[in-house]
Design a protein around this nucleic acid. Sequence first.
DNA 1: CAGTACAACTAGTACGTACAAGTGGCACGT
DNA 2: ACGTGCCACTTGTACGTACTAGTTGTACTG
Lengths: 360, 360
Amino acid sequence: MGDPGGAGRSAERGTPVGRPKRPTMSDIAARVGVSQALVSLVFRNQPGASSDTRRRVFQAAEELGYRPDTAAQLLRRTRSRQLGVLFTMRQPHDVGIVEALYPAAREHGYTLVLNAMVDTRDERQAMDELLGLRCEAIITIGTTFERHHLATEVGGPSIVEINPLTRAAGTDVVRTAERNGMRQAVDHLVAQGHRAIAHIDGGAMPGAEERRRGYRAAMRHHGLADHIRVHPGDYTEESGARVARDLLARPELPTAVIAGNDRCAHGLLGTFLRAGVSVPDDVSIVGYDDSQLARLSFIDLTSVRQDAAEAAEVAVRAAAERLDGGRTADRDIVLDPTLVVRGSTGPARTRSMPDGDLLR
Amino acid sequence: MGDPGGAGRSAERGTPVGRPKRPTMSDIAARVGVSQALVSLVFRNQPGASSDTRRRVFQAAEELGYRPDTAAQLLRRTRSRQLGVLFTMRQPHDVGIVEALYPAAREHGYTLVLNAMVDTRDERQAMDELLGLRCEAIITIGTTFERHHLATEVGGPSIVEINPLTRAAGTDVVRTAERNGMRQAVDHLVAQGHRAIAHIDGGAMPGAEERRRGYRAAMRHHGLADHIRVHPGDYTEESGARVARDLLARPELPTAVIAGNDRCAHGLLGTFLRAGVSVPDDVSIVGYDDSQLARLSFIDLTSVRQDAAEAAEVAVRAAAERLDGGRTADRDIVLDPTLVVRGSTGPARTRSMPDGDLLR
DNA sequence: CAGTACAACTAGTACGTACAAGTGGCACGT
DNA sequence: ACGTGCCACTTGTACGTACTAGTTGTACTG
């Protein structure tokens, strides 16, 4: 009424065209013949309703197709119990962490709100969306940007960073003992007789600097300082492929290469195989992350394992400590990685590789 | 007041420990000396406020660290302008679609709410979360479950399915002309002299049945009915690897294999290379999706391209047509794929492969 | 039989925003 | 002088839920 000729013009505002209003608690209450407050009690499983009333409320809800309105719950509740997750979908290991976050969050009574970092939107905007949704904490995974502005903001959320680029004051950090991981990788190779062990680093990617340092330290520890070779790269297949081509153009290959992560190792491995270099007979390759990629039968990559489930669990717990436990001091949680030995590493070759084998 | 001894006990309910209340429009209004409604006007960029007032409102917002509360906006607005996205993170092509959805949604004035399908949570629960958040439409990507119950539900959202397993009444579908794609793949191989062209199918995965049929039809069209070989598989690397091992155990390899998707092709390719089978000299391989995997230099896979950006754009447009345009009839949108020829296909081998080359 | 305790309920309000319906003041025209 | 129109603003209410503070009725206690 009062809206003559308004049949087809509700496109811009108003109820989406042709969609009936969704039922609310009041609708259920009216149908059952009780108050809205009692319906609310029933759904929250609080004492104060008879079992008969509970049954009738649930039945009416079913019949009406009722769904609780998260927006209204969020608005009314003092706590949202939501955790925002900022991540990228291009690193298999990060994806594994996101998947592991779901059960971890549920265990602590939290819900996840995902927000993917995509090229076309900046991180600031993504963060704002999460904050607008009243996330109590934000968990970032392997992000490469600076976000110090958030940590100090009034009423800002708790922030837990998994494998961050740098540590920021006011946030909790969950990271891997990269030096430890690199040490295990180098130890393993040295035990197999390797001396010329190269490293493709991750450039400015999260954890890369630590891994680079760990590699150097481990090499020096074994008296192999002269064999230290760091090839610049990043966490993509193509950087591994590029380094492989570079190495193939040289007179002598190293006997082993430790890549910055599994994707990089994949590119290295694939390019070597294409060029007729045998892995691990000619060159041993070690990856990093132990993502699903490393476990594929035809890749079968020795890799430094970062336990995604553990990282996820620890990150959620850190958030819960702040939110539910009142902790205010920053925590720096360092997880120990484990080397998983697979088929891409073996004894160092003793012969020099004939040039003709390469670059056919 | 009225809360004696309440300093440290707000863990269970109340404001998260130690977090000050976030500022609201009323706080801004009080500081500027205007009403909350006027502040709302300013943020919505509606006429009715002087430019001086606007400036002061923005400044106060900045100073207070104000962020609009999405929950309250959602509750009050008649439209949420949110699109829910249900997806899995394990298929590179699906990830590409999600990434492309962001700009597409923004262009139509919508916001995305992501919800990942993970093993540990069922799809029903994931859908419910999206509905609770007032998503006006839900876009599913390559999901394998049945969700007819939603399409017919009272006040249910619009549903757009990208590459669904089966078509459901009441939903829009965006899919690929799989027969067309398969036809192009077979045509390409036949033109290169291939006759023994095998196919690894995707089993019960979305689109697999159509691709299988398309393969059979194209083979028959070229008079190659006798060469039809369908190997059961799925959309993972390991299924490709397994088929590769099966093929290697036989007396004669096909001269070409069309995989169910790129990941499957990857497994096939990697296993062949490991076994000393040369691609494309001994065997040509065609993938499907043209995901990032196919484009890697050392994989360089000829693949049937499904344009992720186009699928995303079309899906959002379909949702907008229903929500803003009032369309109620179902749409079935079929996108044409394009074969992208790369280095994994070449002329068919003419010689028979010596047994000794394989399975060394 | 009064008093108490408890179960089962209701009324009312608040959350932060959007929006409809005003109000007051000023400039303009006739 | 008076109406008209417009700008810049305010008041009040609604969205759907959660939660506090009641209110009723019944059973039990001494």
